[in-house]
């Protein structure tokens, strides 16, 4: 999975990078375009990606709610997945949630409920976990395609389609693979969570709107001044 985290890199010509956006900051040395698709994340993108992986982790620290009828907990963690997509764009959002999963895999107890380690990828929630980067990436791609300013209605449509539709498709498939539940029973086990997830999608969309208002320029290719630290 890591080759997707790092779409490129050429060890010998590591100077060839393309900025995600920041015209006023110095680009990486000799910012030259390599072949299409062969793009490396530069340092500033790594920071944004890592911080959004950490936001998903922080939201997982909020207590999870377990219902006795299903092994899948209600957590704020998927809130972070939708937010990453709605805020930082597809490429970086995908990488951020993949990094989150990698951090879980090397043992940080940052999955909702304080879980971590490779073991979680054998649990019934594995489908939801695999969905994290894909959903974040697709939301980010669709959000960028709609463009600035961030609007609630298209945001809701995108976040519902991927954040609920696609997430449940993955989650349901994962449950079929790891439990002895039949397709219908697995769906019934997941259904109660739809209410919570609908609330989450609405909240995440409103939050994304608030973030874009406070930190403009994230949806355009180029980032205006005022976004960065210590502008003076």
């Amino acid at each position: 999975m890591f080759n997707m985290l790092l779409p490129v890199t050429d060890n010998t010509v590591s100077d060839n990078t393309v900025t995600e956006g920041s015209p006023n900051r110095a680009p990486a040395t000799g910012a030259a375009m390599t072949a299409p698709g062969a793009r490396r994340f530069e340092a500033r993108d790594i920071a944004v990606i890592a911080v959004f992986a950490a936001i998903t982790a922080a939201l997982g620290l909020l207590p999870a709610i377990y219902l006795p009828i299903s092994p899948v907990p209600i957590t704020a963690q998927t809130f972070g997945v939708i937010l990453a997509g709605a805020v930082i764009g597809g490429r970086r959002a995908f990488a951020s949630q993949l990094l989150f999963l990698a951090l879980v895999a090397i043992g940080l107890p940052i999955l909702a409920g304080g879980r971590g380690g490779i073991g979680v990828f054998a649990s019934p929630t594995v489908g939801f976990l695999i969905a994290f980067p894909i959903v974040a990436g697709l939301i980010g791609w669709a959000t960028r395609a709609v463009g600035a300013p961030y609007r609630i209605v298209p945001g809701l449509v995108i976040n519902t389609a991927f954040g609920i539709g696609l997430t449940y498709l993955f989650g349901w498939t994962g449950m079929l693979a790891t439990t002895h539940l039949g397709p219908r029973a697995a769906f019934v086990a997941l259904a109660p969570f739809l209410i919570g997830d609908a609330v989450k999608v609405v909240l995440a969309t409103a939050t994304a709107k608030g973030v874009h208002a406070s930190y403009p320029g994230l949806l355009s290719r180029r980032r205006p001044h005022g976004a960065g630290p210590h502008p003076a």
Partner: peptide, 13 residues
Amino acid sequence: SLREADALGEALV
């Protein structure tokens, strides 16, 4: 967090 990421990115550079 976004502002923190900007500062961290600058430090990495």
